[in-house]
């Protein structure tokens, strides 16, 4: 069931990135230089955070499978905290972008699609991260007491890795290409 949800969610993000590609290719003005707009070191740090959280999440799944629920709880908590850190960094990134004059329908670089797709794609991804953090905290606090704790942790893990997977393409397509 979770796989079905993830595939449909992947199609949603694929649609966003496809729309972004179309908008960028169809733009009659030159696309803004990403290195002048974004601090790539900061964005790389955000990526580092998500990669690390995926690893701690996978470790939580492994610990839960081996019946080491206390260790699983610790890994889940660390994953949630890193997720919160990612959200904090994204808030800083949005704040800088908005202070630079970017809005949903306009921006100082003269290509409206540049900021529209930024808010749309990173906003949707951030919402997924926020939902993931809430689910991780709930799982840490309550669900590990259940008899099928290992399955619950694995399902939550699938969702969290998907969030990381989407970021791979957002980071690559939006910030690097």
């Amino acid at each position: 069931m979770m796989w079905l949800f993830l595939v449909t969610d992947a199609l949603l993000f694929a649609g966003f990135l496809g729309g972004y590609a179309f908008c960028r290719l169809a733009s009659d003005k030159p696309w803004p230089d990403r290195t002048q707009v974004f601090d790539l070191t900061f964005i790389t740090l955000m990526t580092f955070a998500l990669i690390t959280s995926s690893t701690t999440m996978a470790s939580a799944v492994l610990a839960a499978r081996n019946g080491r629920l206390q260790a699983a709880r610790g890994f889940l908590l660390v994953t949630a905290l890193i997720g919160l850190g990612f959200l904090g960094m994204q808030a800083v990134e949005w704040s800088h972008f908005i202070h630079a004059g970017a809005r949903m329908d306009s921006n100082p670089w003269g290509v409206p699609g540049f900021s529209s797709y930024f808010f749309l794609i990173t906003g949707f991804h951030g919402t997924h991260v926020l939902i993931g953090v809430v689910v991780l905290l709930l799982t840490t606090l309550r669900s590990l007491q259940r008899s099928n704790a290992d399955e619950l942790v694995e399902v939550v893990g699938l969702y969290w890795h998907f969030v990381d997977l989407v970021w791979v393409f957002v980071f690559g397509c939006y910030y690097l290409v």
Partner: peptide, 29 residues
């Protein structure tokens, strides 16, 4: 990730994205 950031070349970026996606789906998921 670091290689993609420093390179910036499109083939490296596409290859890097696919490699990272493969590791996440095959190993972590």
């Amino acid at each position: 990730t670091v290689g993609m950031v420093f390179s910036g070349a499109k083939p490296v970026l596409v290859g890097g994205m696919l490699a990272k996606a493969s590791i996440i789906t095959l190993l972590y998921m």
